[in-house]
């Protein structure tokens, strides 16, 4: 990893100048700012970082940075980032997206990304709603939330991403709040530094379809218990948590994914010995 001279790199170095499509007041503005702050704090050069996303409001983030970006198809950001990181281990790869992209259409990839433990940082901007399609319930939406698509609510229990991440093998689990951009930036930087698959759930209000989420600023608090590397303790903590404890909640010690053992590369033509009589 090449690092640029610290003097030249500021959060501004990571902004592209493309104007976001987000609504005024959207939490994602702050998360974008936190990502750029974290990248600057890490001393990375923009060309050595890649931001990978799927589809949704928050998934627009790559084009708003000056890093290499990959804005792919809905739900498949984690596989694209996995391929990129395994092919190019020298890059810092951050995956960004929303709750619908990551937990619904991309749910299977979420399980396997946690399990595979490739050295990625996954930032989910969770607003408990599909914003880009104008207000449908997502896996993290409360069961009684009324909407046109699910009048009276879905009646379905919320998905618990942190518990799922822990059970599936994620190596770093944190919760952040977009209203605390410095705290979020610090968590993202810690997540990037932590080896293996790091998962940060960022509470990022949708003021358009979930205006009541403005109240989150009064609900969040720093987690009262210190970080643990014990999955059993972390499981208990996450299962009993009310969804508003911020900070690093689990930092594990699993070795990150490694591709098959590499030998001194031999010439591709020599593979024909497999076939020659």
């Amino acid at each position: 990893m090449s690092t640029a001279s610290a003097a030249a790199i500021t959060p501004q170095s990571f902004k592209s100048g493309v104007k976001p499509v987000w609504c005024p007041g959207c939490g994602d503005y702050s998360v974008l700012s936190s990502i750029t702050k974290a990248l600057a704090a890490l001393g990375l050069a923009p060309e050595n970082a890649a931001i990978v996303s799927g589809i949704g409001c928050s998934s627009r983030i790559p084009a708003y940075t000056s890093c290499y970006g990959f804005h792919g198809v809905h739900g498949r950001a984690l596989p694209a980032a996995t391929g990129l990181k395994i092919a190019r281990p020298d890059l810092t790869v951050i995956v960004a997206g929303g709750d619908g992209d990551g937990y619904s259409i991309g749910g299977n990839h979420f399980l396997h990304a946690c399990r595979r433990n490739v050295d990625l940082t996954y930032v989910v901007m969770d607003n408990h709603v599909y914003g880009m399609t104008k207000g449908q319930p997502s896996p993290t939406t409360e069961p009684d939330w009324d909407s046109k698509l699910a009048p009276g609510g879905t009646g379905l229990r919320e998905f618990h991403p942190l518990v799922i991440a822990l059970a599936s093998g994620a190596n770093f689990i944190a919760r952040a709040f977009s209203g605390d951009p410095n705290g979020t930036a610090d968590l993202i930087a810690q997540a990037v530094r932590h080896p293996g698959f790091s998962f940060i759930e960022v509470l990022s209000p949708c003021v358009t379809y979930r205006p009541e989420q403005r109240g989150w600023k009064d609900a969040v608090r720093p987690a009262s218990v210190a970080v643990t590397d014990d999955p059993a303790r972390a499981a208990r903590r996450l299962m009993t948590d009310d969804g508003f404890n911020l900070g690093v909640l689990y930092a594990g010690r699993r070795a990150p994914y490694r591709a098959a053992p590499q030998h001194e590369p031999q010439s591709p033509a020599s593979l024909e010995l497999d076939f020659a009589l």
């Binding site: 990978v52 290499y68 990959f70 792919g72 694209a80 980032a81 996995t82 391929g83 092919a87 190019r88």
Partner: peptide, 10 residues
Amino acid sequence: NMTLGASFGG
């Protein structure tokens, strides 16, 4: 999607 990520990486 993994292959697209790798190919994007060159």
